[in-house]
Amino acid sequence: MHEMSLCQGVLKILQEQAEIQNYSKVNSVTLEVGELSTAVPESMEMCFDAITRGTLADGAELIIVRTKGEAWCRKCEDLVPVKERFGPCPQCNGVDIELRAGDALRIQELEVD
């Protein structure tokens, strides 16, 4: 259940940014959660709801943007879609691939008051 820790990280960033960006309430948070990242979106939603109660983000909507896994296959010399972080290339079935996208866990933007 490390989504709880991840959401604690999100809340901490919201609180820090509140001073920098001068807001007192967060209405929505857009998170990029890559399909190959270590977080499960449903758990993120549940934890976010629990951890933001009584904070500046109480009741804020969590918008999760899923990004697909994409890797560079050295054999094909091509960007290929991947379903597993270290899974084989769907074109040549080789494993000499380097993940390029889909593992991000990132706050993209907020709607604030």
Partner: peptide, 14 residues
């Protein structure tokens, strides 16, 4: 209400 771009890794605090 306004939109604030953050682009910060969730694990950055850790």
């Amino acid at each position: 209400a306004r939109v604030v771009k953050i682009e910060q890794d969730i694990l950055s605090v850790n």
